[in-house]
Design a protein around this nucleic acid. Sequence first.
DNA 1: GTATGTTCAAGATG
DNA 2: CCATCTTGAACATA
Length: 674
Amino acid sequence: MDRARNFMPGPNQELLDAKPLRSLAPMFPAPMGVNINQSSTPPLVVVTPVGQFPTGFGAGSLPAVGSLATFSATANAFSPAGTSANVPIDVTPVSAYKTRSSGVTPRNDDGEPYSVSQTSASERQAKRSAGLAAEGSNGVKVKRPKPIYRNHVSGKLLAFLPTSDSTPREAVEAVHMTFEALRRRHLQMDETLDASRRADLKAGAIMLASDIRANVGKRVGTVPGVEIGDIFYFRMELCIIGLHAPSMSGIDYMSANFGNGEDSVAICIVAAGGYENDDDDTDTLVYSGSGGNSRNTEERHDQKLERGNLALERSLHRKNEIRVVRGFRDPATITGKIYIYDGLYKIQESWKERTKFGINCFKYRLQREPGQRDGAAIWKRTQRWIQNASTRGRVIQHDLSSGAETFPVCVVNEIDHEKGPGHFTYTTEVKYPRPLSSMKALQGCGCQSVCLPGDANCACGQHNGGDLPYSSAGVLVCRKPVIYECGEACHCSLNCRNRVCQKGIRYHFEVFRTTNRGWGLRCWDPIRAGAFICEYAGEVIDELQVNLDDSEDDYIFQTMCPGEKTLKWNSGPELIGKESTYVSPDEFQPLPIKISAKQIGNVSRFMNHSCSPNAFWQPVQYDHGDDKHPRIMFFALNHIPPMTELTYDYGVVGAGTSRSKTCLCGSLTCRGLL
DNA sequence: GTATGTTCAAGATG
DNA sequence: CCATCTTGAACATA
């Protein structure tokens, strides 16, 4: 529908021509003047296959690989040295590390150099070709090409770094997960020392000093690997993935050469959501210009038409697309803020307005480009459902848990006429074959009131390896073989931060009909990386019990080795110079526990497999001490936007198992079988 | 709950 | 190349 417009020359043509210089677009065999980045199609397909990279560029530094088969092979048989050995790349030692000497050594060590991301590689390509500017007279000049640093911290491979054959989505995810790992780790350390809590800034400083980032350089339009609906909790996250560069300012803009001189255009805004306008209309947005507000030393004054304000004004006339990140109050978090990437908008009009403080301020009305998938609209919708569950339509069962969970678990089918999942009994917890009292007891701590991080006398802290596993916000810092929460033997209160999973589900789940994978699980709430999601409830199968019915296989949980994305979630330590806790697939030790959710279970039994999952399982103990049969808890691998299907990696099945099935996860790095 | 003050870093600018 | 300026978020405290 909107497509025809993309091919028409219009007032924005020069800008459209300018754009591909800074994106992946030149690699497409596209006719001149076609705006490739303009997403009239949903950005689900925005990922660029690696094969798009010309084999010759970058001084031959990129391998001429790129088939998905190649990637799956490396993903399956991951070995750190082997993988990186395939990635020769020009390495520059990291020399700056803002948090002092702790981590960085020049490249003198045994580890292999590692590629930051293909996005950076493409940036280099873009910068090299920028001089040629063969695309026409309107090439955008890159104003300040920055050196591309390679990161090499303490001689260790950095946890989540994408390889050169990562898709843009994987590159962004990898950078983002690295940031989150660093942030959680620094928060944990800060809380131990009761020091400053700006772990977001610390993580950001390390990321930028090491140049671990995606989509370096400014661009108009979509950012490769960033999808509409993606959620964030800190401004620094937007910065390191290349969505919105300024760490504070709400307006990101760039200068460009349009053939007839330099001009500035706005490229991204963060609408902080302070001004709640009409509820239902998420497609228009009124944004206020910046400046003029009173500062400590200055008086209030009228806003001036300069910098960001000027760029917005120029963008009104150029009619270029502007990315919009919308901030909302998130009632679920204490600080209560969440940022949602809402896709591309255009400015319709601007005007001056006198504020209540009596100063003139600029206002801009933005209209969302049609044909994009919902972003902020989903947030508004799910928040409404959370406030009043009866506003959720298409419900075929209002509470699958029959009141067992704090919040009802509804069942919806928007696909076909299935009436609901087959019968089972809902239970909130796993059920052991033997009474808990007969199992080995878990040791407890003697802490009064609550356990505190850094308390050497807290037995639970010591049991967990010295640190409490959760931050004060209840977010898991790092994967571990087992996590020991405080339990009955502990003297601390139920408010202790070391009691998370035992408090049960805190989200509004819905079981929904998928198009091709039966029933699936998703959530109305946003879930931040590291947050506890749910337990795998069911019956623990006694090892003595044999001859299981095959039909039960679909609902059996076993601790099989998950893929790389999950395994690397525990790689925070080496980022701050501590010993890596990475467990390679070779070293992976499965637990004997098997849980069947065929007869009894909870929402977890509806979680489908994905080779690129957003959740992972983690053994947790709190009501007994038998480490071979822990409870299995699911946590978020990365931030999960509302209404995103929750998936985990079912793991690699050993050869000769009758259980292998064709995988339908649809991930670009799908292993094919499960 | 909310009002206010302090501190912070990236990138533009001169 | 470097110093200065511009921004408002995040959080602590009142």
